[in-house]
Nucleic acid binder design. Structure first.
Lengths: 238, 238
DNA sequence: GAGTGGTCTAGACCACTAT
DNA sequence: TAGTGGTCTAGACCACTCT
């Protein structure tokens, strides 16, 4: 683990454990330099991370302070910021997230998929449709496309567990970033049936394109979320 | 303007103007150092910004590349990343964003508002309800609360224009960050009337708390968005 | 092995806040 | 005016990719 990450992690813990409480002032950067035997830039970087997670506020001329939120909210921010690029599995720690695979097939990439994944020629892609459940209750319906030449040997069994784990742990590929668009509309008949909601009931539609560290998009997915459990939290800085 | 911002801005332009095209490799960091007479760290910082906007991809050992997206998408990313903390006004450049003020009053802060704005005692807050229109068509209904002791002398006229402009330009306060939660539900009767949609039509509900550079929350708002024009885009890194 | 970007440092100097 | 965090530098060393 990198030094600035370790420092951020340590401060994060001290905030959740109450060593530093909401509205408390953190030690001065000059003091943090001594505490962690790090340079000014490294300390700044660690603090920048915590700031982008919404945990602290820096005031030039005054000091650095824990954001004045309920501990509950601070906890939520931490859990949330760690799960940005991963499945829902981490957000719902303590709950069982499972999947029912409805479709697992290989097709030639449809037009929208070709565009999103920047495929110029006819290309075979997995088409995977899954219902995701939280403690047995369905909360989302996901349709996902991945080129087979990028993600070889994917099996139905992986889709039942975590596709991302397979990509990271078995293929040793790094997921670097994602573009996400959230929209709203009424549920269609399949969605209402799978998510146990009235037809035309409001749903959140999340369209995502995931990129590998190489910059290549490898996954295009459209996920429909049942309204009751859907909540997308973000912290905006600057 | 800071050096790393100027460098980022210059590269951003070169990307939109096509000097560097999608999938092109940018000059090496060592070359950028010479071009901009800047140190490695400063170049890195500029590139980090562009990366967090989703415009470029860095590959250790290989180089830095423009993300392989349609120019159209790159443009969208740029416009979007600049408008994170501002009103919708900038996203819809070229279109007229106007407001109709439905309520402009001062009330004692309701419970939820007291919680979100961390008010311990009875406190007077503005309660402002606005319909926002794009080229004359309503797209959102916003209810906004701000303590009068933080934002003095706010007038109905400011709410008809831009409240944030008043805060920044007249009060000289800096808006530093915001926490945002997006949810989905059916429209109530007021929303359906104001937004010209069927009752129970799906709407996006965006709940936001804005913070000043001092770390103090000064604005709590709940905005209901008509589904057709609502699209919230995000880039997730790391 | 040659070449890429990443981390970290020590220190100069700047911008802002408080008193 | 003293003290805070911010920017920027020059350079050492590290991690990764490609051949």
């Amino acid at each position: 683990m990198l030094k600035y990450q370790a420092i951020a992690e340590d401060l994060r813990q001290k905030i959740t454990q109450g060593t530093y409480q909401p509205d408390d002032q953190l030690p001065l950067t000059s003091e943090l330099e001594k505490i962690y035997h790090a340079s000014k830039m490294t300390i700044k970087r660690a603090l920048d991370h915590l700031e982008s997670e919404g945990l602290i506020v820096k005031r030039r001329g005054s000091g650095t302070f824990v954001k004045g939120l309920a501990m509950n909210d601070l906890d939520k921010l931490i859990r949330h910021s760690r799960s940005q690029l991963f499945g829902m599995s981490k957000v719902y720690a303590g709950h069982a997230v499972t999947s029912k695979v409805r479709v697992f097939e290989i097709v030639t990439a449809p037009k929208e998929v070709k565009t999103q994944l920047r495929l110029n020629h006819e290309t075979f892609v997995y088409r995977i449709v899954r219902v995701r459940l939280l403690d047995g209750t369905p909360f989302s319906l996901e349709t996902s496309y991945m080129p087979i030449f990028l993600i070889p040997n994917l099996r139905r069994q992986h889709a039942e567990q975590s596709i991302f784990s397979y990509i990271r742990d078995s293929l040793h590929l790094k997921i670097q970033s994602a573009h996400r668009i959230v929209r709203v509309r009424g549920a269609n008949s399949q969605e209402s049936a799978e998510l146990h909601i009235a037809s035309d009931s409001p749903v959140a539609v999340v369209q995502e394109t995931y990129f590998l560290a190489s910059g290549i998009p490898f996954n295009y997915s459209v996920t429909t979320h049942e309204p009751k459990h859907f909540a997308l939290e973000t912290v905006i800085i600057d």
